[in-house]
Design a protein around this nucleic acid. Structure first.
Lengths: 93, 93
DNA sequence: ACTTACCGTAAGCAATGGCTTACCAACATG
DNA sequence: CATGTTGGTAAGCCATTGCTTACGGTAAGT
């Protein structure tokens, strides 16, 4: 659900109400998800009249990117190391 | 916690008990996490005597990789599109 | 100034998740 | 065949999560 809110935000900056439309939950629920996403640094918000427009934060996105890239690197390195261990005196042919 | 189990598995294939050692939870808890990971296709298991050796599944890992890569692509594309929309009649200098 | 639109927050509640203990099955060892 | 080791599963419990309704507060329109 939280991801749905975020993905919805990929269509461009939007006010809370607009996001809540088309989602199967109440507007306050969306508001709460946005709060979490904001604390996580994944979105930013600005007041615009009586509305509150939310927007994806590229910085936060980049941070997650970095984290995951490292994770993959470690995971694959570990796996490769494991495979090579099996190949000790491997099977040429 | 579940990730801890998985990361522990990066050190190479291991039986359940060995994984549980060094983790602050009981062995059954580890067993349950492994069950989930297995259903998710992230690990495989083989019987080895009375032990059950678990191992990271490279296929599952690759699948997640693909999923995330696509996610990033979409996210970044969306964001770029958004930025360019702001640049309509942009500011060359 | 009154009313309407929009939104964040609080309180309450149901569902889910994750852990533990207890138990049972399979294999190994003597 | 008796015993010990290893591990999956069930039942129960506690904490957390996520949703809803209700309320209050600010901005905009008349």
């Amino acid at each position: 659900m939280r991801r749905s809110v975020f993905e919805r935000l990929m269509d461009g900056p939007q006010p809370v109400g607009r996001i809540a439309l088309g989602l199967p939950v109440s507007r306050p629920a969306v508001s709460q998800h946005l709060k979490v996403l904001k604390e996580a640094g994944l979105v930013t918000d600005r007041a615009e009249g009586t509305r509150r427009v939310y927007c994806i934060d590229p910085h936060g996105l980049a941070a997650v990117r970095r984290y995951l890239d490292q994770f993959w690197t470690e995971a694959l390195d570990a796996f490769v190391a494991e495979v090579e261990k099996d190949d000790k005196g491997g099977s040429p042919k």
